[in-house]
C-alpha cells in the first residue's frame, strides 16, 4: 500500500503526458515581470517543433527554460516542472550542467569560441573529461560530418573558427553542440543572421538531424516554420495559445489569435 504522501510524490515526479520533453505549469518571472504564464505542453521525440509567435511573446525565454539557461539571467525565477524523459530538470538534485549536456543549444548569432575549428568542436568533449586524442579526432570528424561541414573544413581544422563564413560558423556551432552527444537540440532563430543560401543549408540540416535528435526551433519566419516543422507551438504574450501538428496549425488553426498571426495581422 502506498501512503497518500508517497502517492502524491509519485504523481508529482512523473509527467501525465508522453513526450521527450513535458512541460507542466511553467511560469517564468524576470523580477516582477511575468514572462511565461502557466505553460503546459508535451514536445514529441525526434521531430522538429517550431515555436512561433510575435516579438516579445516569450519564445526565447521558453526555449531557455528547457535547458535551464534561463537561470543565467539575473533575477529570473522559474516555477513549475520541465520533464526530460520523466526527470524534472528543475528538481534540486539535478545538476544543470548535466541537463545542458543532454539538451544542447544553438544561438541566434553564431558564437564560435575564439579558437580553432577543431578546438571549438572538441571543447564540449574536453570539458566532459575526454582527453584521448583519437577519441577526440573521431568525435570532431563525426560531429562536423553530421553538421555537413566536414568537407569544407577537413583540411583547415587548425584555422581559427572566425575565419569561416557566417553560415559555416553556425554549422560549426551545431557540430559543437552535437559533439557532446545531446538528445535534444534547442535552436534560437538559428538562421536569423544568415543569408538565404546559408539558411537553406541549415534548414535541410535540421530536417536531417531530426532522425536522431529532438529539435526545438524558435523562429520568426513563418515560411521557415512551414518548411521544417512537424509540430508547432504558438505563443502570445507569454501564454500558450495553440499547439499541435504543423499541418493542422497551418491549415486549420482554431484560435482567432493564431489565425490573425498566420494571416500576418501582427508579427
Amino acid at each position: 500500500m502506498l501512503s497518500s504522501k508517497s502517492l502524491k510524490n509519485l504523481q508529482h515526479s512523473r509527467p501525465s503526458v508522453q513526450g521527450k520533453i513535458v512541460v507542466e505549469n511553467l511560469n517564468v518571472y524576470f523580477g516582477k515581470h511575468h514572462v511565461l504564464k502557466n505553460l503546459s505542453i508535451a514536445i514529441p521525440d525526434r521531430q522538429v517543433t517550431a515555436i512561433i509567435g510575435p516579438s516579445g511573446c516569450g519564445k526565447t525565454t521558453f526555449l531557455r527554460s528547457l535547458n535551464r539557461m534561463i537561470e543565467l539571467v539575473d533575477g529570473a525565477k522559474v516555477t513549475g516542472k520541465v520533464f526530460l524523459d520523466g526527470l524534472n530538470i528543475y528538481s534540486p538534485k539535478v545538476d544543470s550542467s548535466d541537463i545542458r549536456r543532454r539538451v544542447g543549444m544553438v544561438f541566434q548569432k553564431p558564437n564560435p569560441l575564439p579558437m580553432s575549428i577543431y578546438d571549438n568542436v572538441a571543447f564540449g568533449p574536453r570539458i566532459h573529461g575526454i582527453r584521448n586524442k583519437k577519441v577526440l579526432d573521431k568525435l570532431v570528424e563525426e560531429s562536423l560530418k553530421a553538421a555537413g561541414l566536414w568537407d569544407e573544413v577537413k583540411n583547415r581544422l587548425k584555422d581559427p573558427a572566425v575565419s569561416l563564413s557566417g553560415g559555416q560558423q553556425q554549422r560549426l556551432c551545431i557540430a559543437r553542440a552535437l559533439a557532446v552527444n545531446p538528445e535534444v537540440l534547442l535552436m534560437d532563430e538559428p538562421t536569423a543572421s544568415l543569408d538565404p543560401i546559408s539558411s537553406a543549408k541549415i534548414e535541410s540540416l535540421i530536417r536531417e538531424l531530426k532522425r536522431k535528435y529532438t529539435i526545438i526551433v524558435v523562429t520568426h519566419n513563418l515560411q521557415q516554420a512551414m518548411r521544417i516543422a512537424d509540430y508547432v507551438v504558438f505563443l502570445f504574450m507569454g501564454e500558450l495559445i495553440e499547439h499541435g501538428a504543423a499541418d493542422e496549425i497551418f491549415t486549420s488553426p482554431r484560435n482567432t489569435k493564431t489565425i490573425e498571426y498566420l494571416r500576418g495581422a501582427f508579427s
Binding site: 539557461m69 541537463i99 545542458r100 544542447g104
Partner: peptide, 25 residues
C-alpha cells in the same frame, strides 16, 4: 556573454566556463 553561454550550453560548470573561456580571453 555569448562566449560564456557557448561554454555553459555545452554543460560546462561555471568554473570551467571561467577557466576555459573567460580567463583565456
Amino acid at each position: 556573454m555569448e562566449y560564456r553561454e557557448a561554454a555553459l550550453a555545452l554543460g560546462a560548470t561555471r568554473w570551467q566556463a571561467t577557466k576555459t573561456v573567460v580567463l583565456r580571453l
